[in-house]
Write a protein that binds this DNA or RNA. Structure first.
Length: 520
RNA sequence: GCGGGUGUAGCUCAGUGGUAGAGCGUCAGCCUUCCAAGCUGAAUGUCGCGGGUUCAAAUCCCGUCGCCCGCUCCA
């Protein structure tokens, strides 16, 4: 396997209008990317495919565990939620830790975890202060040095030492003094202010994930839509994370779109549903063009799991910049009842589900009242397939990018027809002899039929080779050419993008041909 | 955040102090009966941005921003 050139992919994305740097004419802004005309359509196609296959006809109509039908409903929740949402979810608590870096060793430490040996008497004079991490190798080493320097020592927290005195501090693993940076906040959530006065009381966050909106509206959906467990709620939209290091083209962007499903089920069935969604999500990515060995499903090890999770898998793609490793496209997590329980506690609102079917079933089985009550009223467990749409687009771009030196136009994008932003193109072989008129008519017919799913192009300029080449880079799967035979025999050639092969089909069968290839 | 690299036309890049260039692409015309073909012509740049040195800066200096690579981080 040869690794594709990320530089070449990025150049093509710019050149053909898939992806532009955000705010480029102002010098760009780190971690943000815009989509050009082809990229915007392509990303829309990906989102539509997700919406169709996860909400409108979940899992392609497959039956779930126990032969149960899979029902999902859509939801659209806001980027800005009540700040308490993020306290309940754990995002506020988990990511507010100030850190200090060591310029010498490149180590990074939690500011409030660093301790320091100082002289028991107080004044260290011009001798250094010895920082260390409790229960690490640095503790004994620094203690020895400190006792040699001061005799009696005591331990204080680094937080008690003025930053101005950091110049005298010897970092835990450092050889030279004064290598620790001032403490810096690493808060992955974006802040904003709600209301024009923008005081601290108005502080709010831009969501770091779309999932919490689903949990927050879980009760409303249950109360107003007649859904019954098991069922899913899908939510797509933009999320924000202040990534420490945005890197690798759009892979780690600070603003990105997610497509998340929360599938709620009875705790006893949750593991079966987890496996169901895990396996389907893998098949789904394969179905839209990530069919090769670059896509893997990776089950997390036990020690990687969150404390509440009974299982997590990642769908991972081998990007050119991760190869030979893989990068995450989607995580499928068994989240237990963690999120609903958290929101129930923080909001003081009952988020239990009353399962009448379960009650009737248990009654029929003659179970005790206590058991029936316990088993038919519960906080549902939740399976979360959470996909990154921008990462999906990036993986599809990387997978599609192909260089074939034997072709007159070596670079082409082998998009799956469902994802391709341009679905078909119509060319008159030469711009005369009545061919443009026929082409225009066919173009109008195809546009009429397919405008909902993507572009249909018509091009009569320049040589036929250039026109094919342009469509290759845009990833258009089929080009139809009107030639002399069209005028006499009512047939056209259809050129397959990936093979360059042509076949003749009847002019009046072109529309049906495209429909079939698009699976419509 | 640290270290290294880099930034000139849409793309790839040349240009080491003295009039901003090439190839490709794009556009127009001609030609052209199937693969970036040929001919002619055209448009496109605050040389990433800001400051400084200089008679003169794409070029030297300082700062800054973006991108790439490595480290670090990544609920």
């Amino acid at each position: 396997m040869t690794t594709k050139s990320m530089d070449a992919i990025m150049a093509l994305c710019k050149r053909r209008g898939f992806i532009y740097q955000a705010s480029e004419i102002y010098g760009g802004i780190n971690g943000f990317w815009d989509y050009g005309p082809l990229g915007a359509q392509m990303k829309k196609n990906l989102r539509e495919a997700w919406w169709q296959d996860m909400i409108m006809r979940p899992a392609w109509g497959k039956a779930g565990p126990g032969g149960k039908s899979v029902r999902c409903v859509p939801l659209e929740t806001r980027i800005i939620q009540h700040p308490k949402v993020w306290q309940a979810s754990g995002h506020v608590g988990g990511f507010n830790d100030p850190m200090v870096d060591c310029r010498e060793t490149k180590n990074r430490y939690r500011y409030d975890h660093v301790s320091v040996f100082v002289p028991a008497s107080g004044d260290a004079g011009d001798k250094p202060l010895f920082a260390f991490m409790k229960d690490s190798a640095s503790e004994a080493k620094q203690q020895k040095k400190a006792e040699k320097a001061f005799g009696q020592v005591k331990v204080v927290a680094l937080t008690t030492i003025p930053v101005a005195n950091f110049a005298k501090v010897l970092g835990p693993d450092a050889e030279k003094v004064g290598t620790l940076t001032e403490p810096r906040q690493f808060n992955l959530m974006f802040h904003t202010y709600v209301g024009a006065t923008a005081s601290e009381d108005d502080k709010a966050y831009l969501r770091p994930e779309t999932a919490q909106g689903i949990f927050v509206q879980f009760k409303n959906v249950v109360d107003t839509t007649r859904v019954k467990i098991p069922f899913g709620i899908g939510n797509t939209g933009t999320s924000f994370r202040n990534e420490v290091t945005p890197r690798n083209f759009t892979f780690r962007s600070r603003e990105f779109d997610q497509a998340e499903l929360e599938f709620f089920c009875h705790p006893d069935e949750s593991f079966e549903w987890y496996k169901f969604w895990r396996d389907f999500r893998m098949q789904w990515w394969q179905s839209i063009g990530l069919a090769g060995e670059n896509l893997i499903l990776r089950e997390h090890d036990k020690d990687e799991l969150s404390h509440y999770s009974q299982g997590t898998s990642d769908v991972e793609y081998r990007f050119p910049f991760t190869a030979p490793g893989f990068g995450e496209l989607e995580g499928i997590a068994h989240r237990g009842c963690f999120d609903l329980t958290q929101h129930q506690e923080h909001s003081k609102t009952k988020l239990e589900y009353f399962d009448q079917e379960m009650q009737l079933k248990l009654q029929g089985e003659g179970k005790s009242k206590e058991e029936i009550a316990a088993k038919s009223k519960y906080i549902p467990h939740c399976i979360e397939p959470a996909a990154g749409l921008d990462r999906g687009v990036l993986a599809l771009l990387c997978e599609a990018y192909t260089v074939d030196a034997s072709r007159p136009s070596p670079e082409l994008m082998k998009f799956h027809p469902r994802i391709a932003p341009i679905k078909a193109a119509v060319f008159p072989l030469v711009a005369k002899d009545g061919m443009p008129e026929v082409a225009e008519k066919l173009h109008a017919e195809l546009s009429e039929k397919f405008w909902r799913v993507g572009g249909v192009e018509m091009d009569e300029k320049q040589s036929i080779g250039k026109r094919y080449a342009r469509m290759d880079e845009a990833g258009c799967p089929f080009c139809f050419t009107i030639d002399g035979e069209t005028l006499t025999g009512q047939t056209v050639t259809v050129r397959d993008r990936d093979s360059g092969q042509q076949q003749r089909i009847a002019l009046d069968k072109v529309s049906a041909f495209v429909s079939e290839k698009l699976g419509m």
